[in-house]
Computed example of a mutant assay.
Amino acid sequence: MHAIDVRSAVPAEAAAVSRLLAAVIRESYTGTLEKDAVERLVGVNCSLPRISAEIGVPGGAPSWLGWLVAAEADQVVGAAAGGVPAPGEGELYVLCTAPERRRDGIGSALLSVLTERMRRHDARRQSVSLPTEADPALPFYTVHGFTGAGRRLSRGM
């Protein structure tokens, strides 16, 4: 097993991020959400032109801190994106780990790096919105100190 490298995504990784995110959404929400809802999530969130454009913006503005990837031997095994859209308020837009690599610490590593980026932009809270109240990622966020009711979770930083 190779070491996991968490770093800013580069343009050549856009297709890998798009494929990974689509696979994670389909694996995570099939059976939980209606098929049309799952495909809408994929369509909105996994568009290669969108991800390519977002990776092209390096993340210098607080509201957009850019895409991170977790790579192992040049293979993208996780991805995350976030920003600080309001003073003091960090927002986690995406955090995903390849389904076969869950529980390997990849999501925690991505969350840690993204949290540090948010702190550098004066975020004191961090929030995430989940597609469903029965979200399979809920235990991950709970372990990391996120609380809340419904689909919106947050934690102090």
Results as ranks from 00 to 15, higher is better:
S47E: 10
E133N: 04
D104V: 00
I106A: 06
I25A: 07
G82R: 01
D74Q: 15
P131W: 06
M118A: 11
C96S: 11
G31A: 12
P62A: 15
G66S: 12
E116N: 06
L21M: 06
L48N: 07
A12H: 13
V143W: 01
V10A: 13
S129C: 02
A61C: 10
G105Y: 03
P58W: 03
A123V: 02
T97M: 08
E133K: 08
V6C: 14
S154F: 08
A23R: 15
V77K: 03
D36L: 10
T32H: 06
E91P: 00
D104F: 07
V69Q: 12
R7Y: 05
T142R: 15
V113N: 02
A134C: 03
R125V: 05
G156W: 09
C96F: 14
R40Y: 05
T30M: 00
R101S: 11
L92T: 08
L114E: 12
M1K: 02
L111H: 12
R125A: 06
S47P: 04
A123S: 03
V38N: 08
E39G: 00
T32A: 12
R124L: 10
R40T: 11
E72C: 14
S52F: 00
T30C: 10
L138I: 06
R124H: 02
G105W: 08
G156P: 07
M1D: 09
P99G: 12
V69T: 14
A61L: 14
C96E: 11
M157D: 00
E54C: 00
V128N: 00
I25R: 07
E34C: 01
H144I: 05
L95A: 11
D36A: 15
G156I: 12
E133S: 12
R120L: 10
H144P: 03
H2Q: 14
P62Y: 09
R151F: 06
A9M: 04
V10S: 14
E133W: 01
P99E: 13
L130F: 01
V57W: 03
A15Y: 00
W64I: 02
G105F: 02
G31Q: 11
L41V: 04
G31I: 09
D135H: 12
P139G: 09
Q126L: 15
G31R: 09
A79K: 06
